[in-house]
Design a binder for these strands. Structure first.
Lengths: 111, 111
DNA sequence: TACTTAAATAAGTGAATATTGATATATTGA
DNA sequence: TCAATATATCAATATTCACTTATTTAAGTA
């Protein structure tokens, strides 16, 4: 393997710890739904609660988790707290993951 | 939103359950390491055990998990059991996740 | 001040999961 | 059939995590 590729590979390996940390957020359907619902612009917690049809503390819990791994930004405006996607790339990753997952599943169901 | 985009959006939403199921595999560093180590071709369990520096039952457990969400293929050849990536797209997803994760972290550490 | 609404936190529960050490199963060759 | 090697599974533990109900904090308003 050329030196540059080698470097990239080691760099990738080194980042797997933090990748798994962020990846944890992708392991829960409710969090995926929340992230996806934010991709059209920031929303207040209560809006998310309504849209998701989840209890307010549960949404708050998941938002905290998403904050922990830096996937969302927060901004308070008076009574309301607005959440927003911190980096749009996570949406692309979720799309790819969903696509792959359905493909894998359909392949299995084909026989 | 145009009808086609709308369709895509609903299709995406529908797949979030299975996406989260597969996403669970991306939430553990050891599984990410195993997947990445398989991207250069299939390997036996004992090879993986050596490379990962993990106990054999633990590797077996994670491989079972990866099998459960169809991310790896298995083939027995005599004494040895070979594991291989089922769909290369998972490697790309891991790369993107790792890249995003390091970026998010470095942005935070910048202040 | 008291009242209202929004959001976060506390505390508790049950289920899932990562890990370990011991054991079982499978395959091959002597 | 026995021994050796490879892999899977079992049992036990510890931890994490999603979720609930109740409570608290924060901010705005009358």
């Amino acid at each position: 393997m050329p030196a540059k590729e080698q470097d990239k590979a080691t760099e990738l390996k080194r980042s797997l710890g933090i990748a798994a940390f962020v990846g944890k957020s992708l392991s829960d359907e409710n969090r995926l739904r929340i992230l996806l619902s934010l991709c059209n612009g920031r929303k207040t917690v209560s809006t998310i609660v309504e849209e998701m049809n989840l209890s307010q503390p549960l949404v708050s819990h998941h938002l905290k988790e998403l904050r922990r791994c830096l996937l969302v930004k927060v901004e308070r405006k008076g009574l309301f707290v607005y959440y927003d996607i911190a980096d749009e790339r996570i949406i692309d990753i979720i799309r790819r993951l969903a696509h792959l997952a359905t493909d894998l599943l359909s392949q299995r169901d084909t026989f």
